[in-house]
Design a protein around this nucleic acid. Structure first.
Lengths: 135, 135
DNA sequence: CACAGGTGCTTGAGTGCATCAAGTAGTCTT
DNA sequence: AAGACTACTTGATGCACTCAAGCACCTGTG
């Protein structure tokens, strides 16, 4: 055989590796870490409470505090007290943040670039396989 | 529709997320970080020079030094000077390290568990799609 | 041989992510 | 109004990672 077919396990490993690397690079290109980019992404749907974000990102609340502080320092995110429950701080993305987020999304070429190699039926196939794997 | 089909982009994101989490959990179960487990894995084929490892893991040499130091402290890895070029330190996995590595591999249930849901033809399909994506 | 330059690794300093424990406000229950 | 609970912050710690500087060793040139 011309190209010894790698095992599926190895292929998945490589795939995940490339995917992670691409995301990290896209974030880093605008001076963000992957974690910061994730947080920003979680805010695109509207403002969220810190605790909500911690649950969603599966991490400690104090972790969100730190990430938010760094993003706030760059003016990408705003932290406002909830008018109803003053314990709660609501995080929202600023216009500058939305701009940066768009740049990350655009620079995250993995889906665009690599998925472009697949035909429509192939993409449907992959989608079906994924839904089985994710259950 | 019963289950709004997620977009393929989202599915891939979720897949990668689950994969990473599973690996991390498997490593953590034996008290290793994902990075340490990766380093250990890179040694299963035989001893490697520190620099080689840095290139392979796409990180700084001093990073490898630190990771190796932690693994060495646990007796999972041995660091011996190369007899030919005494600048070079060759890292090799110890029997204890091999043991731990096996445990990680066994605990990394992602492929075993999730891939088990696919039939043989489906696995072949996925493998072909992956090879297109990885080019 | 000697010595200048290159190589391989380590050290030290600094940053960020992540987690835990403890603290502070604010809310809710009774 | 007191006590329990909640939401977030602070402080401390550990690891991953990077860069700059340093040390030991090798190598090519004269």
């Amino acid at each position: 055989m011309t190209e010894a077919a790698e095992s599926l396990d190895q292929q998945l490993w490589d795939f995940v590796y490339a995917y992670d690397a691409a995301y990290d690079a896209a974030a880093r290109a605008v001076g963000l870490s992957a974690a910061q980019a994730c947080l920003l992404d979680a805010l695109t749907g509207g403002s969220r409470a810190m605790g909500e974000l911690a649950t969603e990102l599966l991490c400690d609340a104090s972790n969100v505090t730190q990430l938010a502080a760094r993003l706030e320092a760059r003016g990408l995110v705003a932290r406002d007290p909830d008018p109803v429950d003053r314990r709660v701080k609501r995080l929202s993305i600023t216009p500058a943040g939305r701009q940066v987020h768009q740049t990350v999304r655009a620079g995250f070429d993995f889906p665009a670039d690599r998925l472009g190699r697949l035909s429509d039926p192939e993409r449907r196939q992959l989608s079906q396989l994924m839904s089985k794997l994710l259950a």
